[in-house]
Design a protein around this nucleic acid. Structure first.
Lengths: 188, 188
DNA sequence: ACCTGAACACCGTTCAAGT
DNA sequence: ACCTGAACACCGTTCAAGT
């Protein structure tokens, strides 16, 4: 069994990583979802090879970008699982997942197709799944949700609503309505 | 007002078009959704420039690929609008849209973001919208659907379910369940 | 008229050479 | 150890030259 021993990066290495992520984020904010490695390296003032050292492929870079939102989402999911009114907790969980995906396209991309590149992301995914399962168990017991639904259905359904919401005008308003429809459909 | 007068292509031109579409379809069937123009031209035994003459960009090629399925879908939508039991008609409409998108990735892509490149596609889209509106009007009158839903919501929701269904194992089974959830949620 | 494919710009990815 | 960027392969797109 061997685990990576070094948890903190060397200062310059950490700086490179941060600058790469910043450049990538700037591009995404400007509406470019392609994340071209060469262009990002140039904008970050870093050699391409160094970008590849930190992020072996575009998927890894995407996960690096999504980590922050993903962490927040896990926190929200846990809070939802604690809600004394679990029907509300369930609605909160799905709403949070949807909102985070709409504000962060990288998170939407990462959740849309699992198959994780980074251990961090895999870990976050497990934690999200665990929180979702708690919500689901309590909701089932309270009889407020269909019995055939799984935590993975939650992931897929929120990704689906996100996709539907982005596929036309006023994504925010559409997302609210579609979430409403799905929540109602999820009742037993 | 000027309309294109030539409806039938010159024989060789039609052959080029057909070969291009065949090559593109072969690629998509092999799981490549990128549709690289150069590679397709080579595989079709045609100059790249000729491909561009027929399909000025990838979106146009995508629409060319989707036309057949789209036409079938319009037919199915019209049949759904005629169903004496309009609740069933509505379910049939959404099921057909979903099924076609799952069997034809190009149709899923075309419907997912409108902004049509070809007149044919624009026409098909209008016809689909008209049929959906008929279904919706009848369903509303019969009181079997939420009043705030539009034909465009149907498009977006089916695209969303398709996306959710593809985002994990057994897309077919997932699609059925998700459609079930959404149909229930659409009731008033 | 329509077709061809060389040519140019750009991106992904690797790896020998530097520090 | 880590970083750099030239180098190679590949793709999108155009356009001068062919038929």
């Amino acid at each position: 069994m061997s685990y990576p021993l070094r948890v903190t990066l060397r200062a310059d290495s950490a700086r490179v990583r941060a600058r790469t992520l910043a450049a990538a984020r700037a591009r995404m904010a400007a509406g470019d979802l392609e994340l071209p490695m060469n262009a990002i390296a140039k904008e970050a003032g870093v050699g391409v090879g160094t970008v590849y050292r930190h992020f072996p492929n575009r998927r890894a870079l995407l996960e690096g970008l999504a980590t922050e939102s993903f962490t927040e989402l896990v926190r929200e999911a846990r809070a939802a699982a604690e809600n004394p009114d679990i029907a509300t907790g369930l609605a909160d969980l799905l709403r949070a997942a949807l909102r985070r995906q709409l504000t962060d396209a990288s998170l939407a991309a990462v959740l849309s197709e699992p198959g994780f590149e980074c251990l961090d992301t895999q870990e976050l995914s497990k934690e999200l799944g665990a929180a979702a399962l708690q919500v689901l168990d309590r909701a089932r017991e309270a009889g407020v949700v269909r019995r055939d639904v799984t935590p993975d259905d939650f992931r897929r359904l929120t990704c689906g609503i996100q996709h539907a919401a982005r596929g036309g005008g006023d994504p925010g308003a559409a997302a609210d309505r579609y979430l409403d429809i799905v929540l109602k459909g999820l009742r037993p």
